[in-house]
Design a binder for these strands. Structure first.
Lengths: 347, 347
DNA sequence: TCACCTTTGTTAAACGTTTCGTTTTTATTG
DNA sequence: CAATAAAAACGAAACGTTTAACAAAGGTGA
């Protein structure tokens, strides 16, 4: 029924070894190659991947591990990576674990036992334990978006946006427009990335002699909450802050999730942007531009992140560790919107 | 190095056949089962998937084929499906083809030659050709979101939202609020789903004696455009329409992509929602609720779509075709926002 | 022409499972 | 207790490749 390499061998009068060589791009005689190609075409042969993997131990499979697929922000990164590796005849398996640590552990074990050739992680917070495990198993890992806390002791390749500069850019923009009393609304998560964004804002203001206190950093140790609950919580927080005496004139959203909660708060309080309150956000969303008042924000270059991560992983897979470990910082793009009021000119 | 079934056999003093039976949930003696479990735990054995597949021909792999991963509206559906099948020890491979027909063909061939046990398609428009091909190869297919045009001649299982009722709901809402001159802004795509949504709106209005002409249905045969170009084009279209004499008082967006273009237009013209223009949208976006004026819309129940599709595919994989073909219509949810002005009361 | 490389091809043994046909063990019955 | 049936375990042969180790063919220079 199913056509195998033996059929091609029989059809061409060659041995399976020769056909196999053809399949693996090992040089064979020109006339044989023509013969084989004709036979493959004629019989509609396609190699059996499982047999190839079983024999060669080369799985040509990489994994993408993301905390939550429902959270579509990273979709284009996954798309970019998938494309890159598909074009190199690699299979890409995307797995998520929805913040389920038990599941995450199993996924990691799967990846090791299935001989994945590499892994790209989009961790949600601390992932030190896992990438060590993988590296010990000889599986190259690239971490996106986050900088592991133990990177000094346990080096690993990372690709992430320029969180510091992007945030500083936004903070400076706020300051230059006269906002001296601002608040930072973060997503309540222990994340190095978010911390860097917060630090950048504080640094900018402290350089201008202002000590930001109205921040709202993550108070508690991490407990997983559904995105919609995080949004709701953020909404309530901001409502509370804006309702206080001497409320801030501007809010810095540390990411698009906090922006949703924040916008919701602003909206429900009936505040006008930017007349009553100014907003900036780290992260972009297609709707930010289309909204009533377009949001001033910095956009991560998701395509570049995806490509660089893919290239770097490919380099590691092919055994080139000459520049290990790399921490690749991808530039962000400033999107000027209308969500910041200039307090000097009053508009 | 790597621990195999033979090692477990040796460790327990049993044969590989018995261990294999244990792995495949075939009844073995209780004491042997305990022995095997202990050995597996002790040696850290994990079966080699390629060998299993090669020998048994059961790949325990399904595919999700989506036109474009960058467009991550369907992320949560993919997440739901992935979870469902992962919990059944299935591997899920998601592939996209970014509207590249050549690539799409190759992906389909891959799926067939790799003996996928099933496929869930999120087609972009017409996919008749491919699901026939797959069905002929004995691979069950579930189609999401779209109803193939040739479904009468070539039956197939489908899971999709109640596009007609959802749209009718929105249209009725507009009519009840006094909007008699409305326009439909669709994404310029030949898609049965979009056509149904448009038809529903027209039907509602025609029942009220109004013949909608200010629609903007897809004029040209399909050519692929980048999402951002579609958005831009939609923006320009709506600007043009709103700039005409006797402009509509409300716009119906056929999906979230057209909404982005449309909102952009409204915003760039400096129009106020809902004072100057009313809006409704088929589809929801997290930001719709958080925006300055929250959007009245119907939300697809993406979780239910994902679950029903998974269950149905599983049923087919297990050989149960008793109710074939199923067209499962999933209810949508009406989200009342503030984007529609009541022209009777004036607010 | 011969010895010696190179290049290309071949044969056959893996890879780690499942499964078929058979044998052994256990349980059942007269 | 022997005879038989049923259940469980076994041994070995697949599954479709890749890849050693080897052989043959073709070139090259003395």
């Amino acid at each position: 029924m199913k056509v195998t390499i033996k059929d091609i061998a029989k059809e061409t009068g060659l041995s399976t070894a020769t056909v196999s060589k053809y399949l693996n791009n090992i040089k064979i005689q020109e006339n044989n190659r023509i013969l084989i190609e004709a036979a493959i075409e004629k019989l509609g042969y396609r190699p059996n991947r499982s047999a190839q993997i079983l024999r060669s131990k080369k799985t040509r499979t990489i994994g993408i591990l993301i905390s939550d697929l429902g959270n579509y922000f990273w979709g284009s990164v996954i798309g970019t990576i998938s494309h890159y590796f598909a074009s190199q005849q690699y299979t890409v398996i995307t797995r998520s674990y929805s913040f389920d640590m038990e599941l995450e552990k199993n996924v990691i074990r799967d990846i090791i036992s299935q001989n994945f050739e590499g892994l790209i992680m989009l961790p949600f917070n601390n992932c030190d334990h896992y990438y060590k495990l993988l590296q010990n198993a000889g599986i190259p890992v690239i971490i996106l978006d986050q900088l592991p806390t133990m990177i000094q002791e346990y080096p690993v390749d990372c690709v992430l946006s320029d969180n510091y500069d992007g945030s500083a850019l936004l903070a400076e923009h706020l300051y230059q427009n006269g906002h001296t009393n601002i608040c930072i609304l973060d997503q309540a998560v222990n994340s190095h990335t978010i911390e860097v964004r917060i630090k950048a804002v504080k640094d900018v203001y402290s350089r201008h002699g202002i000590n930001l206190t109205t921040c709202f950093p993550c108070p508690e140790p991490f407990i997983f909450k559904e995105t919609k609950d995080v949004i709701l919580e953020n909404k309530q927080r901001l409502c509370q802050i804006l309702d206080s005496p001497d409320p801030p004139t501007a809010v810095f959203f540390t990411n698009y999730i906090s922006a949703m909660g924040g916008l919701s708060a602003v909206n429900s309080l009936g505040l006008n942007v930017p007349d009553d309150i100014s907003l900036v956000c780290f992260d972009n969303d297609p709707l930010f531009r289309a909204m009533h008042t377009s949001m001033t924000c910095v956009a991560q270059d998701l395509t570049s992140i995806g490509i660089r991560a893919s290239e770097l992983l490919m380099q590691r897979i092919s055994g080139d560790y000459s520049d290990f470990p790399v921490t690749e910082i991808i530039n962000v793009e400033f999107h000027s919107g209308k969500s910041v009021r200039n307090l000097h000119t009053g508009r």
